[in-house]
């Protein structure tokens, strides 16, 4: 078999492996970031900072195409990039309609709401300048995104009811609070945005932060912050991605079932690609590495079936193979 053929097969195999990782194979990635009304200078500044930081990260580190990023803030004049629009309800809905128009099934659409929320009886709202955004309006806009992988993060206070209202198959819904009663200004949003800066949130060290990792990072940071301030924790974030309408506080604890499985495979950053002209050997190594990681994940799911020493022995065997693979890939890369 010629080297070219081997290379083509390798690329095909790599593509297959990445495709198996579902959303990571999204053709296009879209981001709608909405900064809500602050109500006072402190929160006005805070929400603006969170919003623009997310946009900076999307454009500068996560590789989003500028035309795929919509940013809406309370004070667009403060946006140094000059791309922000005022976050009025009609503008938010227009941005979502635009994404629905331009995106295709298989794409990733991320909607991030940073601000305050309110819940009065049946009325569950994200607070905007002018009319607020009711959860029903958002839900209606999301129906136009069927077939896409949709992630909605409402980092507002009293955001818990968004989980039940927005939950659907193929959709990740994250809220800063577990219930409408948790109506103090939430810290979650800042920590969630911060998860995509630097590598601290990358728990599995694969070079990318999944939504599950960002959620875990943010909830841990919120908890630590409240403990540091010796305050009772008044925000308990939820994640739902199995479409059952009930969020989990600790998603992903059991990797095989329940919430967390989709969020674990959903990344804002594009999948790392080998540079053009990568050798066939290098590609083969990458494919083999992916296969080993898949086998390791499969072994972890079956952990309970083994004795501890048997499990560790099997794990070590796979990891040694992976370690040798990575060493070989580095050496191949330096040639």
């Amino acid at each position: 078999m010629s080297a070219i053929v081997r290379l083509r097969r390798g690329l095909t195999a790599l593509g297959l492996a990445l495709a198996l990782a579902a959303p990571a194979a999204a053709e296009e990635r879209f981001l709608v970031v909405v900064g809500g009304i602050g109500g006072e200078d402190y929160y006005r500044d805070l929400f603006h900072r969170w919003t623009t930081t997310m946009v900076d990260l999307a454009l500068e580190q996560l590789g989003f195409a500028p035309e795929n990023v919509a940013v809406l803030v309370e004070q667009p004049a403060r946006d140094r990039r000059g791309i922000a629009r005022e976050s009025r309800r009609e503008a938010v809905e227009a941005a979502l309609a635009d994404v629905a128009e331009r995106s295709r099934p298989g794409d990733l659409v991320m909607v991030l709401l940073l601000g305050h929320g309110t819940a009065r009886g049946e009325r569950v709202l994200f607070n905007l300048p002018g009319p607020d955004l009711p959860v029903e309006a958002l839900a209606a806009r999301l129906t136009a995104l069927d077939g896409r992988t949709v992630a909605v993060v409402n980092a507002a206070s009293a955001s818990g009811p968004f989980v039940a209202a927005l939950s659907a198959p193929g959709r990740v819904v994250i809220t800063a609070t577990a219930s409408p009663a948790e109506d103090h200004a939430a810290q979650f949003g800042g920590h969630f945005v911060g998860a995509f800066a630097g590598g601290a949130a990358d728990a599995d060290k694969d070079g990318r932060v999944s939504l599950l990792e960002a959620f875990a990072h943010a909830t841990a940071a919120v908890r630590a912050s409240y403990e540091r301030e010796r305050r009772l924790l008044t925000e308990h974030a939820l994640l739902d991605d199995d479409g059952d309408g009930a969020g989990s506080r600790e998603p992903g604890v059991d990797p095989a079932t329940g919430d967390g499985a989709l969020a674990r495979r959903t990344f804002l950053a594009a999948a790392p690609a080998l540079g053009e002209g990568a050798s066939a050997e290098r590609v083969a190594l990458e494919v083999a590495a992916r296969g080993l990681v898949d086998r390791i994940e499969a072994l972890k799911r079956r952990k309970r079936e083994f004795t501890e020493s048997d499990y560790l022995g099997r794990l070590e065997g796979l990891l040694v193979e992976l370690a040798l693979n990575r060493r070989a890939a580095r050496e191949e890369g330096t040639r």
Binding site: D204, K205, D206, L315, E316, L319, V320, L322, R326
Partner: peptide
Amino acid sequence: ARREVLSALEVAPLYDEALELLLRVR
């Protein structure tokens, strides 16, 4: 060390430094 590095790699299989340490302690 071997036990601990396995714990690290169980969470993060692609953790390069940990993979190298695993080879070293073996």
